[in-house]
Each structure stands twice: as C-alpha cells, then as structure tokens.
Design a protein around this nucleic acid. Structure first.
Lengths: 167, 167
DNA sequence: GCCACATATTTCAAGCCTGAAATTTTAGGC
DNA sequence: GCCTAAAATTTCAGGCTTGAAATATGTGGC
C-alpha cells in the first residue's frame, strides 16, 4: 500500500476551477486600475483647466438633466452618495454661483437645488470637454468591443440584491 | 436659392460616428458604476466585519508580497497614490501594530515599512475573505468572458503615455 | 390638540486624497 | 570643505466621503 502521493491534488482541476476565482480577482484589480487611471486624468484636467472637481461635475450633470431641479435626497440617491456628502458639494457649488437652493412649497424640511443660468452654461462647456476627453482615453476600444463591455459592466454594477442566493 | 434645409445633418454619419463617442462615454459611466458598486460592498464589510478600510487593505497587500518591506516612496509608487497619503495610512497601521517603520541603513532620509507578524497574520485572514467576496460579486461573469475583459481593462489602465499622439 | 414615528436635511468626527510647501539628508561640482 | 541641486519624507490646507447623531418638520392615530 504505497501512499497516494498527494503532489498536486488535481492538476486539471486546478487549471480550471481555482483560477476562476483568481481570474475574477484579477478582473477586479484591472477594473480598479483602469477606473483610477481615467479618474486621475479627468480630475487633473478638471482642476487645472476648469477649476472644478469630479464630484462637482457629477452634481452639475445630474441637475443639468432636470431643469426644475432636484431635492437634496433625490440628488444623493441619484449619485449614490450620502446625504451629508451632497450637502457639502452643493454648498460649494452655491458659493460659486452655479446652483441655487430653493425652499419647497408645502414642505419646509425639503430643499430644491437647481442650476443657475451660469451653472447651466458652465456645465454645457465642461460636458463637451468631458466627452471628448473620455473618448480619447478610451480610443483603443474598438466599436465591436464596446457593446459587450458595456453589457458586462452593467451586469456588475446592477444591484443584484435579494435575487436568489445571499444579500 | 432655397436654404439647404439642415434637418438632421447626416443620418448615416450620426449613426456611425457620433455614437462611437457616446458609446465610449457610456462604457466609462458603466465602469465607474460597477467599480463603485463593488468598492461600496467591500468597504462596508471590511469596516463592519474586519474593522479596517480599503486603503489600509491595499497597503497591507503591497507589503505582504515584500517581506523585507518597502520604502514610503516605493509604496506610494506601487499604489499610485501621493506620498502624503501613504504617510497617513502607514501611521494608522503602525498605531494598530500591523506595520513597523524602520530606518534605512545608509540613508537617513528614507524609511522602510514592513509588516509585523501580527500584520502578516491579519492580512492573510483578510485576503481569503477578499478573494471570496470578489468572486461572489463577479459570479455572473463567465469563464469565457474573463480573459477578454481583463485584457480590455488592462489596455485602459495601462499608461499610454508619450505613445504617438498627445500626452 | 398631542404623541409617536417617519422624513428631509444638516452637522460632525474620522479617514482618505491631492498638490504644494517645508524639512532633512545626500550627492556632485568646485 | 562649501554650496547647490536633487531626493525622501512629512506637513498642511482644502476637499471628498461615510455613518451616526442632531434638527426640524410632517403625518397619523387617538
């Protein structure tokens, strides 16, 4: 009875199963890297060329599509950040004259935030630059690659809560 | 001389050229969304279950692979964050006893940071959890999808500096 | 009308992050 | 042996972010 010689427990299996988890980890790391790379570029140019920031841009973008404005809580839900966070960003944007805060008729707790004319013009300007810049940063991605990649990332970002398993 | 009736400037072109830029923009937005989704989940669990944070985890991970330790500047280059940032994170990790700061023989400006035994054990623990959690969050990504997606993201993250065009 | 609970928002402490300015030390030229 | 520039790091101000606590207001039952 010679011992079964464990060696490498199961070569074929290791090359097929274990790596799946490792590959997913690798995917995550690359995704993080890519995102940070682009964010860094955008942030830098936004700061030096437009004297603004990514979070401010995000808020302006959300408000741009809603001429009537949004409540603080709608804004934070839309951007998926905390209420307190939005308070600070809107405060600074208001200080710069890009947004205005209005009381809501009939609910004195609520606040409606809206772009000013200046904010609207300012964002339109930045939006063009933003799209062009992203297009450049992603110029190596071909037309055929785009759709599958978008679909894949959408699948990841989608809230897969209470579907079947955990969560 | 009737006016040229601008209408829609060039339908065929708009359906072929303009959307490419829009699609890249969409890709970027989905990527950002996906990344934030996963980061939020990891951060939350890291905080509630492991009493730690993502940045601390990143530092521990970098040090884990270098038993001899790393200089502050090597660490910040590796993680692609500023020097000042690393100073703070390492300071907190040192306070928790997970890393130690040693002077470098022959260069009194430099600092070598190394995992303590405790830090090493602590990270090993978290690393297993981390891989499992990421694997779960990406469970919908199939084996066939992984390689192309990793390659694509690597292409985006890769520093495409001074290649041909700008930058 | 009052009370309990829910909602909308702000405030706050703690941590993360950057870019710029300081600090300390090293290295080279003379 | 000095002096200047470069290198390694820290310090700092300003801003982003979260989660928890505080404030203020609204709503429904009684």
């Amino acid at each position: 009875m010679s011992a079964p010689e464990p060696r490498t427990p199961d070569r074929a299996e290791e090359a097929a199963r274990a790596p799946l988890s490792k590959q997913r980890l690798r995917l995550w790391l690359r995704m993080l890297e890519a995102t940070r790379h682009i964010e860094a570029r955008l942030r830098d140019e936004l700061r030096t060329e437009h004297d603004s920031t990514l979070p401010r841009f995000d808020v302006l973008a959300a408000l741009y599509r809603r001429p009537a404005g949004l409540r603080m809580s709608e804004l934070s839900a839309m951007l998926k950040v905390s209420n307190g966070n939005v308070t600070g960003i809107v405060e600074r944007l208001a200080g710069e004259g890009h947004v205005e805060r209005l009381r809501v008729e009939g609910d004195r707790r609520a606040m409606r935030v809206r772009l000013t004319e200046d904010g609207r013009a300012r964002f339109a300007e930045m939006a063009g630059w933003h799209e062009a810049r992203v297009n450049e940063l992603l110029k190596d991605i071909t037309a055929e690659e785009l759709d599958p990649a978008i679909e894949l990332l959408a699948r990841i970002g989608r809230d897969q809560h209470d579907a079947d398993g955990r969560d």
